[in-house]
Design a protein around this nucleic acid. Structure first.
Lengths: 195, 195
DNA sequence: ACCATAACCGGAACTGGTTCCGGTTTCAAG
DNA sequence: CTTGAAACCGGAACCAGTTCCGGTTATGGT
């Protein structure tokens, strides 16, 4: 939490001015607290107030609310990604992929309003967003395990699978019926495995 | 265009007052014009001004921007749905389904900001929204054709397929890369057909 | 130590969706 | 024709995200 300093909000070419760095840290801490309390649909003004800075300061550091959300949850997403190799090693490929997908969807569902942020993360390909790369890598790992056993089709690109997961999160987030996400994952999985 | 009077914005139990009906017609015409000119992300205030009414009037008739969009495009969506039986009759089931899906995605892509409206339409199950029922029926028709030849799996429910299409529209709408939608449709199709 | 300036700060202001409410109009019953 | 009230009208007000800009401050060169 509050990040290890190694990547506050993507490395810059020149280091941040001292006051700027301090405010960035405050903002991340405040955002984590406010989102945990009110959900990710809390207002950015609340976050700024909690951090004791103006909204202008928040926006200079995080150009949109989605990118702030991305920064706050970067660490958790990273953990999710790091679980992929273990799953790939301990389960049959299809089960590993399904399990990981379910965890992914559960994570998205847990934070309200996360799906919109995810779309930005998956779409905006500025190199700063290591989160995207980490996700792609995690899926690639799971797909590779399947391909190596001839269990998954070559046409299934990790980027596409991620996009599909993003779409599922978005749609499932609006529906109360809990089974939807599971059924859509089944559909997607069936589209990935070899026939 | 401007609807045939048979369903201005979902039938009510008591008919509309004369002035209300007039304003509803004006609003639909204005919305169609403004959306055609500025895309579906035009502001509702513009629509209200163009119609010569206040935003309050607009909101009494269309409780959210999404529902206004739904009303404006209801007719076009209906036409899309009506094409399903013809496709099912003239093409092999899988080709028919793919063709219809591509048309669907193209339609969604043509109107900017349509995916959000679609989510509301697919999610909100008040009976008023015949659009949802029409879409489900169209997909069901295509799936039934496939099932009858043993070409498609029983597990693929029309509602789920629609939700998946909605997710694809949403994600593809953000990405510039044009191939994405097509690849996701392939993935989905492959999840539907029997292996 | 001083200064020039680039970087930063905060909040007022703007835009867009949505709600609220005081005043008006239609309509049907008497 | 009168009249009471349900339905309707418009826009002011509200809240969200985002942008802008006049004033401030840290920092590297002298």
């Amino acid at each position: 939490m509050a990040d290890n300093g190694e990547d506050g909000a993507a490395r810059r070419h020149r280091p941040l001015r001292a006051d700027a760095k301090r405010n960035e840290d405050r903002l991340l801490k405040a955002a984590a607290a406010v989102f945990a309390r009110d959900g990710a649909d809390a207002s950015v003004k609340d976050v700024a107030r909690e951090a004791g800075v103006g909204v202008g300061t928040l926006y200079r550091r995080f150009p949109s609310k989605e990118l702030l959300i991305e920064a706050v949850y970067r660490h958790e997403v990273r953990l999710l990604c790091e679980a992929a190799p273990e799953l790939a090693a301990s389960l049959p490929p299809v089960d590993a992929l399904r399990t990981w997908m379910e965890r992914f969807i559960d994570f998205m569902a847990a934070k309200h309003g996360m799906a919109g942020a995810l779309r930005v993360v998956l779409t905006d390909d500025s190199e700063r967003l290591q989160t995207r790369a980490a996700l792609v890598q995690a899926v690639e790992r799971l797909l590779a395990a399947g391909r190596s056993q001839g269990a998954m089709r070559e046409q299934a690109k990790p980027q596409d699978v991620l996009m599909a997961l993003g779409g599922i999160s978005y749609m499932a987030g609006a529906e109360q019926e809990p089974g939807l996400a599971t059924r859509l994952i089944d559909l997607l999985l069936h589209g990935i495995v070899t026939s």
